[in-house]
Simulated scan of single mutants.
Amino acid sequence: MVSPAETIRGVRAGAIAFEDGVVALSVAPAGDVDAALAAALGEAFERLFRGGWQPAELHRVVARRGNPLQADIVADAATNAAEAAGLIDPRWLAQAEELPRAVRSSDRFNLLDAQLDLLLELGRLPPIEVLIPPPGTAASARAANTGDDRVLDRVRALLAKAESTDFPAEAEAYSAKAQELIARHSIEEALTARDRVEVVPYAKRIGVDHPYEGEKAGLLDAVARANHCRTVWSPEFGFSTVFGFDADIDAVELLYTSLLVQANRAMVRDEPAKGKARIKAFRRSFLVAYSVRIGERLSEATRHEIEQHTDLLPVLRGRDLQVREVMDRAFPNTVRARGRRVDSLEGWESGRAAADEAELR
């Protein structure tokens, strides 16, 4: 008689069909099956967590597959890993604690199906760049900066107002003030850090949701470049890795999220009433134009702040080189993305107009 562990190995190796494996596990002793699945999933999660995957990232990749049971399994695994670790980075722990959970009941057959399918999916995921030390390793020495927190809180408040208003002029004013604060704070941070050798670039992965992932990744890249950061888009996982200094990366994430909210609101408001293909072309073209125009506006605002500190140009250039070097070490074989197609003049013009409404001076 084939044991549950042997059945699981057979399915993973392709020697046993997936459906046959689920049936075999469903009629085997429940205690043996649960132990074998728990052991296999535990090994898979340990490999991925040690291989650079953070709780929020792994949860997001699995949740995108549409099975809430599997997303809950990831959340439980992250919590268990955090609780079992003697050493844990507080950022890793915070992600594990904040993962959403959907309380859902399921019969045993569906649960076995979800667990086995998840095990196969986890086996396909490769190691990625370690950005936060995994559980059981030394926590990062990077400390929180209360000054950064205060500035970012002010930026959050301004962007929340920009998102909530129905008046373009108000949204423009709030967003413009937010970008001015971001650019000024980045310069001040560079001034105070130029004599601190230990200050180094960092990286953070930011999820980019479908639909129109490529176009949204283009918006994130435009925001990042205007704020002294660089991005690498990983379409197979649905996230971009943003490289830069801490204050800049945090600001990029805030600004990108807010601008995406504003873009979606304007896009729905202006899109044509009929025709699925026409709406799809409109939205893609809208987001391409919006990203280009936002990039122009953000860069203008950043240049304006830098002009007030021309003596800092060598420091800023040096920081830009550091960011580029860190990115090249992490991704030595990147491929430049192709330009996005614009199939709707109506969408292009509407996207640029919407970007002007969210003008950042």
Rank of each mutant, 00 (worst) to 15 (best):
P4S: 01
R9A: 04
R12N: 09
A13W: 10
G14Q: 12
A17E: 10
A17D: 03
V23W: 08
A24L: 02
L25M: 00
S26Q: 00
D34M: 12
A35P: 05
A38W: 14
L41S: 02
G42T: 11
E46D: 14
R50I: 15
G52W: 06
Q54N: 11
P55D: 03
A56K: 12
H59P: 10
V62F: 04
N67Y: 04
N67F: 00
P68A: 00
P68I: 04
L69G: 01
L69E: 07
I73S: 01
A75I: 14
A77P: 00
A82Y: 14
A82D: 06
A85P: 02
G86W: 05
R91E: 06
W92E: 07
E98R: 15
L99D: 00
V103N: 15
V103D: 12
S106F: 15
D107A: 07
R108C: 00
L112A: 03
Q115W: 09
Q115R: 11
L116M: 14
L118Q: 06
L125A: 02
E129H: 05
V130A: 02
L131Y: 08
T137R: 11
S140K: 11
A144G: 05
T146P: 09
T146N: 11
G147M: 10
G147C: 09
G147S: 14
G147Y: 10
V151W: 02
A157Y: 04
A160G: 08
S164H: 08
T165F: 13
D166Y: 10
A171S: 07
A171W: 15
A176C: 04
K177E: 04
K177S: 10
E180C: 08
E180S: 03
L181N: 07
A183V: 08
L191A: 12
T192P: 02
D195Y: 14
R196T: 10
R205D: 14
I206H: 13
V208L: 12
G214R: 08
E215K: 15
A217D: 00
A224S: 01
R225S: 02
H228T: 13
H228Y: 14
V232I: 12
P235T: 05
E236T: 08
V242Q: 05
F243T: 09
G244D: 02
F245N: 02
F245D: 03
I249F: 08
L254Q: 02
L254D: 05
L255V: 06
T257I: 15
V261P: 04
V261T: 13
V261E: 12
Q262E: 10
R265K: 15
A266Y: 05
D270Y: 08
D270S: 09
P272M: 06
A273P: 05
K274N: 15
A277K: 13
F282K: 01
R283P: 00
L287W: 03
A289R: 09
A289H: 06
S291F: 06
S291Y: 04
G295Q: 02
R297W: 14
A301N: 06
A301R: 04
A301Q: 04
T302V: 01
H304R: 11
E305Q: 06
E307Q: 01
T310N: 09
Q322S: 13
V326D: 12
M327L: 13
A330Q: 14
P332H: 08
N333W: 13
T334D: 15
T334Y: 14
R340L: 07
R341D: 11
D343P: 06
D343F: 03
L345V: 08
W348I: 04
E349W: 10
A353L: 09
A355S: 05
A355G: 03
